[in-house]
């Protein structure tokens, strides 16, 4: 086992990062805040996968790489594997974590998923304010997955669906 720190440290940094971007720097531009948070995640995923794949052969196909994310990569980050992986065999993969660690401490309204929350800002109610705040917390792990996969030579888009809390599904769409 490598070096460790208390989980509260990473929780604290992520909460403050999301809050600084959403409430202080880009309070009126949630889509910009989202892009920055995603970019930070991308950077982290890109660097982490580099470290975890140093001593292994190249992945022969997309599915093998995605399986690595589900098992080894997720275990390094969350001490558990992704619980369920689905694919349509045409470049879309759904990675479901039945109890996603980073959402267990955030209070949430699950009525919107991440893509809807970022586009629909016309009707501001307390409910979709809460959903927007939650979706902001999901841009970071989405960025991590995208960064990791793109470093493995798989350009993709990643979104998250939290309609079945506390489960969280990450939807990976590989770019053709």
């Amino acid at each position: 086992m490598g070096r460790e720190v208390a989980e509260s440290c990473i929780d604290g940094v992520i909460i403050e990062m999301v809050s600084a971007y959403c409430k202080r720097f880009y309070a009126t531009k949630p889509e910009l805040a989202a892009r920055r948070i995603e970019a930070i995640g991308y950077q982290v995923g890109h660097q982490l996968i580099e470290r975890y794949t140093v001593e292994r052969p190249r992945f022969s196909d997309h599915l093998e790489a995605i399986k690595f994310i589900c098992k080894d990569f997720w275990s390094e980050l969350f001490k558990k594997q992704i619980d369920n992986l689905k694919t349509n065999h045409r470049g879309t993969f759904v990675l479901q974590d039945n109890r996603f660690r980073w959402l267990t401490r955030v209070s949430i309204d699950p009525s919107l998923d991440i893509s809807e929350a970022s586009q629909d800002s016309s009707a501001v109610t307390p409910e979709n304010k809460a959903a927007e705040a939650t979706s902001m917390h999901l841009y970071f792990p989405c960025g991590i997955i995208r960064g990791a996969l793109s470093n493995l030579g798989i350009p993709c888009a990643v979104s998250a669906d939290i309609s079945n809390l506390p489960a969280c599904s990450f939807v990976v769409r590989v770019k053709a």
Binding site: G2, R3, E4, V5, A6, E7, S8, C9, I10, V13, I14, M17, I40, G41, Q43, V44, Q47, L48, R51, E76, L77, K79
Partner: peptide
């Protein structure tokens, strides 16, 4: 509860 320090370090750095 503890986590991998690399994740913390790289997140802070990024």
């Amino acid at each position: 509860d503890r986590v991998n320090a690399e994740l913390f370090t790289l997140t802070y750095g990024a």
